[in-house]
Design a protein around this nucleic acid. Structure first.
Lengths: 179, 179
DNA sequence: CTAAATGTTGACCAGTTCAGTCAACAATAT
DNA sequence: ATATTGTTGACTGAACTGGTCAACATTTAG
């Protein structure tokens, strides 16, 4: 039951912003570089976060994005729901009214339990929690020059390339995580 | 974090077999009809279950499939792992050794918790549990002629058609669940 | 021995989704 | 006026999914 790269990248973007709070607008270009995510993709990915008022953006020189809510106000359940579309494993858990017969389905009950278990973890975890945990890990490791805090299991040794600059001809980009 | 139709159908196939224990081999054709799943697809889907010795098959007249293990010996974690490929939301939870840097990633810890929560539910649920729950629901509802016990949230009103007979020209099949 | 009824399996397909890209444009600071 | 940032509609190639086709294998019944 795989998490999409979109939800994963979005979570990393938010943590990156939390780690850089107090620095004004953070250019997406910098986040893309630190997180090794395509800038062009990141620009699209940030839109729902802006629309949901989790993040605000400023255009122009010294532009970028920044958190609009406090990290403790941002629950992961909200983030994943927004980016993934649904947290429930099947649609009849997500929208039981549309599937009245599923009331008599024992299997649906299990997916419901899976959903509750997953949702419970995400609902009780805030961006603040992530921030504190990440800082603790860094304090242990002293990775001052290693803000690439993630490794979400994607193949970071891929030879695929991606651009993270706009309006440039196709060319070498940084190694990306692919699915 | 969607469950694939494959994992969903496989779970329903196993429950259907559990409900029909004691009847010898159950033809896949009958399961396909009851569950409204393509027979042709079901034939492919059953292969890993046979390979894993959860199910056994008999060819020829009076052939079909039947459970090889007792329902209480079949955990859903095993089933979903087999059919879905992985239960963990990201690969670095599934295979941490391949991602050493993820040890310092706070986000990975959260996906780990999500995984543990999900896995916990599936690991503690057996086919026997499903069987008992399904029978209880039926006792309440008396759906004697309604063995289509599921409704996994897929659109059962679809006008798409599917064949569930072999070696016949393309033609009208039964309504199927699509994603 | 033949026909029918079942499973087996390699190959294939159309549609969908995804991760990413392109480019024109808008807004802002210098 | 230029550079630097974000915005957004449209697009793309690859991967995956749910399903199909057909030839074949096995088994039973007549």
């Amino acid at each position: 039951m795989r998490l999409s790269a979109k939800a994963c990248y979005g979570t990393r973007l938010l943590l990156d912003l939390a780690l850089h709070q107090g620095e004004g607008s953070v250019p997406l270009k910098d986040i893309a570089r630190r997180q090794e995510i395509s800038l062009l993709y990141l620009e699209h990915l940030v839109a729902p976060l802006i629309a949901r008022a989790m993040v605000k953006s400023v255009r122009g020189p010294r532009g970028g994005v920044s958190l609009l809510k406090h990290p403790e106000e941002i629950k992961l359940s909200e983030v994943i729901q927004l980016l993934e579309g649904q947290i429930a494993p099947v649609e009849c858990v997500n929208n039981p009214k549309a599937y009245p017969r599923s009331d008599f389905c024992a299997i649906r009950d299990v997916w419901n339990e899976v959903h509750k278990a997953t949702y419970g973890v995400l609902e009780s975890t805030t961006l603040q929690d992530l921030l504190e945990r990440q800082r603790q890990k860094w304090d242990l490791k002293q990775p001052k020059d290693d803000e690439n805090q993630w490794n979400n299991g994607r193949d970071t040794n891929s030879t695929a390339h991606v651009r993270n600059e706009r309006n440039s001809r196709r060319g070498k980009g940084q190694t990306i995580c692919r699915r």
